[in-house]
Write a protein that binds this DNA or RNA. Structure first.
Lengths: 119, 119
DNA sequence: TCGCTGTATCGAAGTTCATCTAATCAACGA
DNA sequence: TCGTTGATTAGATGAACTTCGATACAGCGA
């Protein structure tokens, strides 16, 4: 699980805001993929529940919040995982998820507007 | 043009980060719509060119950056407009676009992680 | 070992999205 | 008024996405 592709697209050395310099196509595709992972209400709520919890969250605590089937939740968690927005680990019967702050920070810094108002 | 629906979904009074408290379904839908507007490489580059420019950008300066048809650019600009990420105005023959900082700030504050590391 | 519970994967059905061409609208100048 | 140029709208098409039920897999306890 956490052994999947987990490397943040380019997180870590965070990244020029889109309002600072025009994005080249490669970075735009990378950023768009990140936004696409958040472009679904269920995924956004999943991430928000996971990120708002203390440390980590069991899938069994996630499912009851939603009115869709288990496989659907699992599918959305996979998309969040592949975007490196969350990571997970199986412990016994249950699987636990936690947020990846680097990726969240990467997104935030993309849309952050440097103090320039009228530069 | 700028007479369209332009009201930011809930920008202005910015907004609890998803990592602070779990999003309710309504706010999640609202946020997801915003992320969806950015979930395309062309739209992300359009916004980035518009936001990186001084003040405003003419459509005729946008089109040459892309290899898709004019109507496609126009379609993507409409989506950015409806998400209140940009606004526009016709001046004579040309149409000019500029970014809406409030909405960008709203997105950034959604994914911002308050200094808490391990809260 | 067998059966049960929790989670993930697979394949299919319906819906949404990105893109194109053709047509329309707006402003300008002859 | 007419033709030209810049931009948007309308309609059609193929690709991608969301969701489901069925199935498979992992771990636990009897």
């Amino acid at each position: 699980m956490s052994k999947q592709k987990t490397a943040p697209p380019s997180a870590g050395g965070c990244c020029t805001p889109i309002s600072e310099a025009a994005l080249d196509p490669a970075r735009a595709a990378e950023g768009a993929a990140l936004f696409k992972a958040l472009a679904d209400p269920i995924r956004l709520r999943l991430l928000s529940i996971i990120a708002a919890s203390d440390g980590e969250t069991c899938v069994c605590d996630l499912t009851p919040h939603f009115e869709v089937s288990g496989p659907t939740i699992s599918h959305h968690l996979k998309i969040l995982r592949e975007a490196a927005l969350v990571d997970c680990e199986r412990r016994g019967t249950w699987v636990y998820y936690w947020p990846v702050p680097e990726t969240l920070h990467h997104i935030a810094s993309l849309v952050t507007i440097p103090a320039k108002a009228a530069r």
